[in-house]
Write a protein that binds this DNA or RNA. Sequence first.
DNA 1: TCAACATATGAACAGTTGTTCATATGTTTG
DNA 2: CAAACATATGAACAACTGTTCATATGTTGA
Lengths: 118, 118
Amino acid sequence: MEERIECCDEHRVHPEIVTHVKLDMPDEERLYDLAELFKVFGDSTRVRILYVLFESEMCVCDLAELLGMTQSAISHQLRVLKQAKLVRARREGKTVFYFLADDHVRTIIGQGMEHLCE
Amino acid sequence: MEERIECCDEHRVHPEIVTHVKLDMPDEERLYDLAELFKVFGDSTRVRILYVLFESEMCVCDLAELLGMTQSAISHQLRVLKQAKLVRARREGKTVFYFLADDHVRTIIGQGMEHLCE
DNA sequence: TCAACATATGAACAGTTGTTCATATGTTTG
DNA sequence: CAAACATATGAACAACTGTTCATATGTTGA
């Protein structure tokens, strides 16, 4: 802990800060999960689906038509979104309606948009 | 616009809503950029780098040592982060210090963490 | 200017991801 | 129950991504 692997010989950053940072870091696993979550936002098909669901819950085939993609592709992506707990599903007869799971989705996407616009 | 490609024959979602959603959607390009932005957050090495930079600006080799990765790997990822304008760099002699570009990064990661914890 | 050091970068490779196609599951209606 | 329809899923393939290795660039001090 006190000894460091050879790297830069002169450390501008104090060892205290490095130690402090190490203590403050969440577990590897938690950070891995966080990256996995953002990975879900990192695909334009899925972002588009989420944007649609901002307005209204919708069934798979309407999503497919709206986004100009096959039912299969949309269904695969909805599964990813569902596993990440970003959307939930509600069955009504033959059709399944998907809707946003909670408001973090809006906030996260909103902040992303803000970042793009600055 | 009024005519729809054959899909579900009975539409539970009113055509008005579909039209409304279409109008409210940002451009393809914007949504693509948004997904690209989140893609940057979607890697645990990059998330870890960002977390470290929450605490303090840091040089490449310190980051490499802290995260137990090669200098090259870190440097490649810093470039990605820089291109996305999530971090900025400051040169001081031989060493280059990287730091967070703005506070959206904190908010976005914070919201992501919140989502995981619910 | 040259050696030593910190960082950046290009090529290559393995691992991952999104779509398509074919098909399976599940639901309603006759 | 069978047909029709909406959705889900598995396999396969192309495209993309992150790391490594080798090397280049840029900076300092002798």
